[in-house]
């Protein structure tokens, strides 16, 4: 009974979260068609207005359409998050597999490097890197990838270690399968589902991190639209127009929760299949 309940629940969560993600993806892909106004069109005469037929969610302190800025912001936030995750994986997967499969001193060196890098809080390290590189979206992505790949490579190395000692890998070695083929044919398929779950569970965190950096002014530069930056912009007008801060905050919340739930549902689904 418990099993059935859990399955159903996980099913429902999966439906809801994947719907949200689908809508968000649409928003990110086609903002010009979906946004009612130009997100960067400044019109001081209409500043800080409430909702109207022209501006469904009102305008900000420079008279820009909030809804349009939110929609364009989806593209920046999600796009950047996926770019960061993608680049991170491009480094982490090969390196993690190499360290785990090769073992020996390569692995030892890799682990010590991880220890050193992970001794610093990642946010601090990213901030320091951005400080060196200078603010801007490109540098933000670079800094986040440079800081985060270590963590994922380490996790992937662990997955490889648990698969590596399975007999079918040994049998493959004995019957002469080249190492690269073993990795591609036996190891990668065995860990890829776990990696996908990991990516989805963590992408919410990346969205949050990007917004934080933009809030601090290190990410995308004005006039580009981004949720964290929108919150920062609305700080002085909090008393008169709290909705200005509320809308982008809600967007961040929804996206982060949706991705976390999706990741968890995905993990449950994969676990069930294994049973």
């Amino acid at each position: 009974m418990k099993n059935v309940k859990r399955k159903l629940l996980s099913h429902k969560l999966m439906m809801i979260s994947s719907m949200i993600i689908f809508i968000m993806t649409l928003l990110a892909l086609f903002p010009p068609f979906l946004a009612p106004n130009d997100p960067n069109l400044i019109d001081i005469t209409h500043k800080l207005q409430g909702s109207s037929s022209k501006f469904p969610l009102g305008t900000d302190h420079l008279g820009r359409c909030i809804l349009s800025r939110l929609i364009y912001g989806t593209r920046t936030s999600l796009g950047t998050a996926f770019l960061v995750m993608g680049l991170t994986m491009m480094i982490s997967i090969p390196l993690g597999i190499y360290a785990g499969f090769r073992g020996g001193w390569v692995d030892y060196l890799f682990m010590r490097m991880c220890d050193i890098l992970m001794a610093f809080p990642s946010l601090l390290l990213s901030l320091a890197l951005i400080g060196i590189l200078g603010p801007g979206l490109g540098n933000l992505i670079l800094a986040m990838v440079l800081v985060h790949w270590v963590f994922y490579a380490r996790v992937i190395r662990g997955m490889v270690l648990s698969v590596k000692e399975q007999n079918f890998i040994l049998a493959a070695k004995v019957c002469g399968t080249p190492r690269l083929v073993i990795v591609i044919k036996h190891i990668l398929p065995a860990i890829i589902s776990q990696v996908v779950v990991l990516v989805f569970m963590d992408i919410g965190g990346v969205v949050l991190a990007i917004s934080s950096f933009s809030f601090l002014g290190f990410g995308i530069q004005p006039p580009g639209a981004e949720w964290g930056m929108m919150i920062n912009d609305s700080k002085p007008f909090f008393r008169n127009a709290p909705s200005l801060m509320l809308y982008p905050g809600m967007m961040i919340l929804i996206v982060v929760v949706a991705f976390n739930l999706f990741g968890e549902a995905l993990r449950d689904a994969l676990d069930l299949r294994r049973e």
Partner: peptide, 22 residues
């Protein structure tokens, strides 16, 4: 590699000796 083809193995755990995805 050429010599190794003459040397093969069968392990105890028959379940983990085959890749379940193939």
């Amino acid at each position: 590699k050429e010599l190794r083809r003459n040397l093969q193995v069968v392990f105890q755990d028959c379940y983990s000796s085959v890749n379940p995805r193939l």
